[in-house]
Simulated scan of single mutants.
Amino acid sequence: MSDRTRVLVVDDQPLIRHSLRLVIDGAPDLTVVGEAHTGATAVAQAARLRPDVVLMDIRMPDGDGIDATRGIVADPALAGTRVLVLSMFELDEHVHAALRAGASGFLLKDAEPERLVDAVRRTRAGESLFAPSILQRLVAHYLDRPGPARPARGPDVLTERETEVLTQVGRGLSNDEIGTALTISRGTVKSHIGSLLAKLHARDRAQLVIAAYEHGLVGSAGDALSAPGS
């Protein structure tokens, strides 16, 4: 089916690739279009297949997942491809490196199959996805790091409503959840998200999450964890 989300599975372990393929192909709207077992082959396969979403392992031979993510994001021909990092580890340096490389989300490999399928769908839709424990650590990193105090409000270029939407994005809410929280339609939320991406020069929603932290719109790690979409 042409409207299926096309997924590239990247992992150096054949058993994990097989398991991920079973989960993805088991969803009626998703399909695995290819596999890769190294960082270098991941970049090559992405360029050849142009998937919608890449499920990316971190620790692999011949270029790790961070380098591969950076290579995919840097390719103008893959502007519509999003990378969702899967890892057995939630080490801070992995999360930060993945986000700096341009990943749209970070999920642990012990996630339930339904959560993985939902993560692929949300990543395709342009939403960021973080495991709750990772979101907590990400928030804490930006709140606790040394440096000048962050502004209490968002950038001056944003309207009041856009600042409210950015705050909810930083808390990990989905578009539907933001619409419910702010009593606006899903279409209106998507319009505001598009405006935020343009005004803040952000590639995707993950960068909006970081922007919300950097501008002090998320008051504490507890704020993020209280979000139903986190």
Rank of each mutant, 00 (worst) to 15 (best):
A224P: 05
R186S: 14
T31E: 15
D67Y: 06
R145E: 09
G65V: 13
M1W: 08
M56T: 11
R21Y: 00
N175Y: 11
I193H: 05
L78Y: 08
A224W: 07
T5A: 15
P113K: 01
P113G: 00
Q13E: 13
T159D: 11
D118Y: 00
A198I: 05
P228E: 10
Q168A: 12
R17Y: 10
K109H: 00
R59G: 14
A98H: 01
A27P: 04
L173T: 11
V169M: 12
V23F: 08
G39M: 02
G216P: 13
R186L: 15
R59H: 08
I72L: 09
L208G: 09
Y142E: 07
H18W: 06
V54R: 08
S2N: 15
G229T: 10
A149S: 13
I72Q: 05
R153C: 11
S128L: 05
I16G: 02
L15I: 15
L22P: 02
F130A: 07
R145F: 03
G194Y: 09
R70F: 11
G126L: 08
L166P: 04
T163A: 15
D156E: 14
E164I: 10
E177V: 11
E90Q: 01
Q207C: 08
I178A: 09
P228L: 12
E35G: 06
T69V: 09
S230F: 01
P76Q: 13
V209W: 02
A97W: 02
D92Q: 10
R124N: 05
S19Y: 09
G194N: 14
T41I: 07
L84D: 07
A212W: 03
R153N: 13
P155W: 07
A101N: 00
M88F: 08
A212V: 11
G229P: 04
A111R: 00
L129Q: 03
E35N: 07
E93H: 02
R122I: 08
R100L: 01
V117D: 00
P28D: 15
P228H: 08
A36V: 09
D204G: 14
R124I: 02
Y142L: 03
H215W: 12
G80Q: 13
A103R: 00
A211K: 05
R6I: 07
M1N: 10
I66W: 07
R115E: 09
S19E: 14
E164A: 14
G187Q: 12
L173C: 08
A44N: 10
G219F: 10
D12R: 04
H37F: 10
V32A: 10
G179I: 09
D52W: 01
F106Q: 02
L30H: 02
D11C: 12
R186W: 10
R6P: 04
P76L: 07
A97K: 00
D144H: 05
G39H: 01
Q168F: 12
D29N: 13
V32S: 06
H96E: 04
G80L: 14
A181I: 06
R59V: 15
P146Y: 01
G187E: 14
R70D: 13
V10R: 07
A198M: 10
P132H: 05
P61M: 09
S128N: 05
L49V: 14
S128W: 01
D156F: 10
S19V: 12
A36K: 04
D67F: 04
L143G: 05
G71R: 02
G216W: 13
A125P: 03
P61R: 05
V54W: 03
L84N: 09
G39Q: 07
Q168C: 13
D110T: 05
